[in-house]
Design a protein around this nucleic acid. Structure first.
Lengths: 199, 199
DNA sequence: GTCTATACGTAGATAGAC
DNA sequence: GTCTATCTACGTATAGAC
């Protein structure tokens, strides 16, 4: 899943439509994107979208599911095998922030366009986002409890870490001076200062 | 300007339209908002918008101008009279982040919808945003130069502070547990850790 | 300045041929 | 599964009465 987020989308035409939609949603927004623009971007004609997706909003939902699966898998994989809280927070923040650089377009879509989902779909996505937040809070809390960190406000500090990583997708430009890995290292370092674990 | 951002908008009908637009743009996005929805929200009928604004995009531009003026004025006022770098960064971050809580709707609009501006308007707004970034970078740099801070990557650290404050508008909810002032204090404290000035 | 009515384009989605 | 053609609704913006 973290190798290529979209690899499992089949058939190939459905994947092309989905990738074209991510591009366009990221650039123009959900409402700013016409279904014709998506199909043209995928090299198809107007009607083809509805063979693979029920509605435009359903296409957005499929994107959101894949993206949130990818984020959760990436974070869990990053924590795997790490024992000490500082090491765990470093790995978590490195993975979370570099993911947001690497997938800045998809990330922008899920940050900005989720209100276009139908209510039941929005609820499923909101639940996945809550899992991400709880994962971060658990790490901050564990480090505070073990004495590795110095944190007065646990949820506030977890929110700060989340902000650092998520906001990457807003300002990151591929042509900019930093690689996703460098951003990962910077955010991880910053996060350790925020939790009071500066070495 | 920092008292009531919108107070200078005249006549009153133009202000009502503008406020209704901010509400709707924040909730549904620029493209998700119809001009009819705006005029209805302002208690008027469809044609009335065009007496006060040339186009829907021009309305967005007026919002962006007012908002960025307000941010710049707020930040400069916060720095006024503060001498030492830690005090200045604390004041700057308190003001910047609590502004983003207090004006989370307007802030969301300017974070998410600026791509809908016409190119010349977008350029003017981009210049104002650059001023904000440079203001933050200058404070981080000054504190590093004076030895009050311990910062290896100046632009990266300035970006981190910016992320902490801006992201507030994405997660803040008025019914949540924290007041804008509490968020300001939290972000200011976090920022001082980020720059390595923990007392 | 505000209203109602309307022009004109484009949107999402479907039908039916291939 | 993809195409072209089309239905229907709604969008922005303007015109002209009050």
């Amino acid at each position: 899943m973290s190798q290529d987020m979209w690899a499992t989308v089949r058939p190939e035409a459905a994947r092309r439509l989905l990738l074209a939609a991510v591009d366009s949603f990221a650039e123009l927004g959900y409402h700013g994107t016409s279904t014709r623009h998506i199909t043209t971007g995928a090299g198809m004609s107007a009607g083809a979208l509805y063979v693979h997706y029920r509605t435009k909003a359903d296409l957005l939902f499929q994107i959101a599911l894949i993206v949130h699966d990818s984020v959760l898998a990436t974070l869990r994989e990053a924590l795997d095998g790490k024992e000490e809280p500082p090491q765990r927070v470093r790995a978590l923040m490195y993975a979370f922030s570099s993911w947001h650089a690497r997938h800045h377009e998809a990330a922008r879509v899920i940050q900005n366009e989720m209100r276009a989902l139908e209510p039941e779909h929005a609820a499923r996505i909101a639940a996945m986002r809550r899992q991400v937040r709880e994962l971060i809070l658990a790490e901050v809390s564990a480090g505070a409890a073990s004495g590795h960190f110095d944190v007065a406000d646990l949820p506030g500090t977890a929110r700060a870490l989340s902000s650092l990583a998520i906001d990457v997708c807003r300002w990151y430009r591929p042509e900019g001076p930093r690689t996703p890995d460098e951003i990962g290292a910077l955010c991880a370092h910053t996060a350790l200062r925020v939790v009071g674990a500066e070495r």
